[in-house]
Each structure stands twice: as C-alpha cells, then as structure tokens.
C-alpha cells in the first residue's frame, strides 16, 4: 500500500451519522473479483437515481468536491457490513483521510489496511470542519508523523492513532510480510495448541 506521511487535500463534508458500508458501496457492486475500479460506485444510491443519472441534490456530485481527498463525516461512520469494498471505493475515488467523531471497528481497521487514515476528532471539531468545507476550496493538512491536522485559517487539532497502525501507514508496509517475521513463534505455538 501507498505510504501516507503528510497529506494536503481538499475537504468534502458529509453531514450524516451512521453512514453504513451498504451506503458507501451498495451490494450490487460486490460481485467483482478485483480490488480496483470501485470508486465510480462510491455512495452509488445517493449519487445516482434509478436511471443512473446523477442526483443534483447529493453534495458529492457538486463540481467543487470532485478532487476531494479528505472526507469529514458524522458519528459511527462505516457501520454495518465488513465489506472491504467500502475503503476500496473511497480510496479509488481519491480519499486518503476520513475524519469522524467515531468509527465502526471493522471499517476503521479496514481503512488502515488500505492506506486510508481514519482520524477521530471531537464532535465540535468535526462540526467546525463540516461548516468550513461548505465553502469552496477548503483544504486541510494532515500530518501523520506529528498526529496533527490544520488549515490556513487557524484550525488546529491533534489526534491519536495506535502506534502499530501508524507505522503501517507511514511505511506502507505489507502486513503479511511483517507477520511472517514471527514465523518461528507461530510454529512453536502450533506444536502445542489443540483444536478439536
């Protein structure tokens, strides 16, 4: 996966709580057997009507957000199905950072394994960012080394991320390769472990 150290990006605000992975990528697109190309189907039922025409009232269809790479959402973001197609779709669309007051566990985890940085901020902070991003050309800088987020208008916040996930993202490591360095321990464990 692509390392993520410091990212400057255009912000897209999605002001809804409990955005579930069925919304992020509807099931009709889960039949593909590759990891690529899911971006065009991101938020499909919100972005397109029954005749596959873009819905004007959905904010991600506005021209000003087309190059967004940072999404700010509401609480419990990514709840529901474990489908990793959700982060694949977000990543393929161009998102590298998702900011929310809280995340569903599996989704959070899936993000970190696909080069997407999930950032938990306080609700007051995400609300502020959502407001700021209603304006044109609102950019944020996300610094994973310093665990800081800021803009050029005075917004400044810090966030936390488990050290393990931080290292993975900073280096873009292949997790399996890391685990295989524990091969001896796994082997030793298997010698005595009983599975009925």
């Amino acid at each position: 996966m692509e390392p993520l150290v410091k990212h400057l990006g255009l912000v897209y605000p999605l002001n809804r709580a409990n955005v579930d992975t069925d919304q992020i990528i509807p099931k009709q697109f889960l039949k593909r057997i590759s990891r690529q190309g899911f971006g065009q189907y991101l938020f499909y039922n919100w972005r397109y009507d029954e005749k596959d025409r873009p819905r004007e009232d959905f904010s991600l269809n506005q021209p000003k957000y087309q190059d967004a790479s940072i999404l700010v959402g509401g609480e419990n973001f990514g709840c529901g199905s474990s489908r990793e197609h959700a982060p694949w779709a977000l990543e393929d669309f161009g998102f590298r950072v998702i900011i929310a007051p809280s995340f569903a566990d599996i989704f959070y985890n899936n993000c970190t394994k696909n080069g997407i940085l999930p950032v938990i901020l306080k609700e007051a902070e995400t609300e502020q960012l959502i407001k700021n991003a209603e304006a044109d050309d609102y950019f944020l800088t996300v610094d994973l080394e310093e665990k800081k987020i800021y803009d050029n208008q005075g917004f400044n916040a810090t966030f936390d991320l488990a050290e393990y996930s931080r290292e993975m993202l900073l280096n873009g490591w292949d997790e399996i390769a890391v685990t295989l360095t524990y091969e001896d321990k796994i082997k030793a464990f298997e010698q005595t472990h009983i599975v009925y």
């Binding site: 990891r35 599996i106 985890n109 899936n110 394994k113």
Partner: peptide, 20 residues
C-alpha cells in the same frame, strides 16, 4: 468476529490476525 478481505488474506497465509 468479522474481518475485512485484507485480513482474510492474512489469515489464509498466516492463520493469525493482529488484534487489540
């Protein structure tokens, strides 16, 4: 517990997952 596809690959290959 449920896991994502990257973890499915990880378990297939190592029979383990990293968990908090």
């Amino acid at each position: 517990f449920g896991i994502g596809t990257s973890e499915v690959e990880h378990v297939l290959s190592t029979q383990t997952v990293w968990q908090q």
